[in-house]
Design a protein around this nucleic acid. Structure first.
Lengths: 236, 236
DNA sequence: TCAAAAGTGTTCCTGTTACACCCATGT
DNA sequence: ACATGGGTGTAACAGGAACACTTTTGA
């Protein structure tokens, strides 16, 4: 056992950069959507880095707040993306050159990154995205019709969609995607959009109400032809 | 938007070291056990670092193989441990000094670490742990009577136990902890140990067999008083 | 009074739970 | 034969799936 030897060959091991990417999920016009930022010709997920004073979870919450101003969003860890070739030299070079900016191979952003992906469920109507220093615009992109994405961000988005399907089997989280008051048909439609399959209305409603999570408000009046649905909100 | 500015304040962000820790779980004498390595006066989880050529998952598999010689173990990601004060200056200093080795504050192992914890389910009888360069011994420690642990490794172990409880509700993974041939009473006892609660024998057996994962071998002969149980193995 | 959309009820089926009972074997 | 421990069966119950029915309201 030679501890000094162990310590001095520390750089035999690569210390990858560590980033955080956020998949901020919303729902509008019967479509699941994802907040994307425009960087040059392609789009990317909002993200950032960890500061000295922060835990990893705190960093994700800060980045979330910087981007959306939301204080206590539904925010969960998704998974680690850490393939050995996960570095973006060519992507950055292309971007810099098309923008007439100098690019240097030694920029730290060219190194390999391991990223911790988080996902958040938000109500689009009350979320006001801020664009950052590099990105020019934002969009709530339809999950099923994503634009060209930088790096491996399309892969991350694909995996969050599968995770969502698993989540709603076990726990009630989807109301985070809706306004404070919503109807059962709306919640029903949302679940069908997430699962991409038809759900029996009767069973769905009974299942939702049996959780005891929701409370019924007076029935909506005169909004649409036919019988109008009750409004619900989350208890507490 | 000033990209140069963005690039040059890269070190405003801390780049934490990234490590991997393995919780290698076994089962012996009706107790769930965890492979620990002795380092000085306390114990720690086996772990390591990521190499340039490796994805994060490949690194965990390599470390697993280095420690146990197992080629295709059941190995899954647990979670990220990344609290802001997750650095082990004092721990390392104490260890070095009690071992009469020089300790320097600038050693890379003193910096903050974010660790990716993985867990693995193995059969203790066919797993032959190797001790590394620093550690002096190994043990299969009872989950419910852990020795003093370095750093936050006790926290990691606590969280893997909860994960296991969740896992066995959804999928059949526990046979990884048993020899290639096992009896239903053994599997039953194992599940009770993991869940820390009694499970109805009849229901348990029917549930296991209804998965279609197991095939029955000839009944065990003359091993113990009373009727002897059938042996099963995983199909395939 | 009919169509449209919401909401409720009925039946069938499956899987869970708790418990009773039957089988094999050593003492 | 009986105690011990493995293995199987059954009745009560809860939850899921499919579908039929009722309610509300505008045209």
């Amino acid at each position: 056992m030679d501890m000094i030897d162990f310590l001095e060959r520390g750089d035999e091991y690569f210390i990858p950069n560590l980033s955080i990417d956020l998949v901020i999920i919303g729902y509008r016009d019967k479509k699941l959507r994802c907040l994307l930022l425009k960087l040059g010709e392609k789009w990317m997920l909002p993200g950032g880095y960890i500061r000295r004073s922060e835990s990893v979870d705190e960093a994700s919450a800060r980045i979330m707040k910087e981007r959306t101003s939301l204080e206590n969003p539904y925010l969960r860890f998704l998974s680690v993306f850490g393939k050995h070739d996960r570095q973006f030299r060519e992507e950055w070079k292309e971007f810099f050159e098309t923008n007439g900016q100098p690019w240097k191979p030694e920029y730290w952003i060219n190194n390999r990154f391991v990223t911790l992906a988080y996902y958040s469920l938000v109500n689009i109507a009350t979320t006001h995205p801020a664009v950052g220093e590099l990105d020019e615009a934002f969009t709530w992109a339809d999950f099923d019709e994503l634009p060209a994405m930088w790096m491996d961000h399309a892969t991350i988005i694909a995996s969050v969609r599968e995770r969502l399907k698993e989540d709603i089997k076990h726990e009630q989280v989807t109301y985070n995607l809706l306004p404070g008051q919503f109807t059962m048909p709306e919640l029903h439609q949302l679940h069908q959009t997430i699962l991409k399959e038809d759900i029996d209305r009767s069973r769905f409603q009974k299942k939702m109400l049996s959780t005891g999570l929701f409370e019924r408000l007076p029935r909506l009046q005169k909004e649409a032809p036919g019988r109008n649905p009750y409004l619900y909100r989350v208890k507490g």
